[in-house]
Amino acid sequence: MKIRPLEGRRLLTIILVAAFAWSLFNVDWGSGLVNTGGLRAAGHIASSILRPDLSLDVLDKAIRASWTTVAYAVAGLTLALAIGFPLGVLGSGVLFRSSWLRRFNVAGTRLVLAFFRSIHELVWAWLFVVAFGLSPLAAVLALGIPYGGILGRIYSELLQDVPEAPLRALRSAGASEWRVFWFGRLPMALPDMLSYTFYRLECGIRSAAILSFVGLGGLGFQIRISLDDLAYGRVWTFLFFLIALVSLVDVWSSMVRRRITA
């Protein structure tokens, strides 16, 4: 039997298994892995799933918190669009013919976009709350910047992936690079761009819910307060609202995506 050299997928398998093993070694498996009474607390939390607190007061809070969460997500996403669209167009480098200018511009924009999105929205939120105070605009800014970075990157890739032939036709008919973009590239990439934006809305709802960790209102804030009160029934009510909200947006966005990209 011939021994095959270690390469490609076999090597990858070994690396992945070894990495997982390494990570397991970093866990302190010694005493005190589980809290004293931790199992009982977990049992309480789990069993409360059947007894969510459905009193009018809690439902009222849940609906208000859901709206706050949606408002942050939508406002944040509009800001992300305002950041991501211009930077995405710049970063795709399609507006320039001179290759030197183009390369410089693409590299610069990509770096800014990468910086925006590599910091998590909650970290942005914390920095903004300390910097600007507990304004809802801090939440919008915190969502808008990383999401703008993600949208910008995806937009620039979609704009580059447009088929070249129709654009060449426009160019040979005498259109300027700006017109080629406006009447050729953008309309062709638009369905995919819109579809991705709608997908991001679903993620935005989840992100908006956790922004409340740093003191901005919303579903996450209510979940945290209820956990502090050990009111597990209330926790589940808010969690069900969050799940329903995310699923609703998920269904809506996938219906939209099917229709505009088909």
């Binding site: 005190g32 589980v34 931790g38 819910a209 960790f213 996450g220 979940i223 945290r224 956990l227 926790v235």
Partner: peptide, 14 residues
């Protein structure tokens, strides 16, 4: 979200 899972799980694990 991950953070909410963490808030729940921390009740059980050290």
């Amino acid at each position: 979200p991950e953070l909410v899972w963490a808030m729940l799980i921390i009740f059980m694990f050290a």
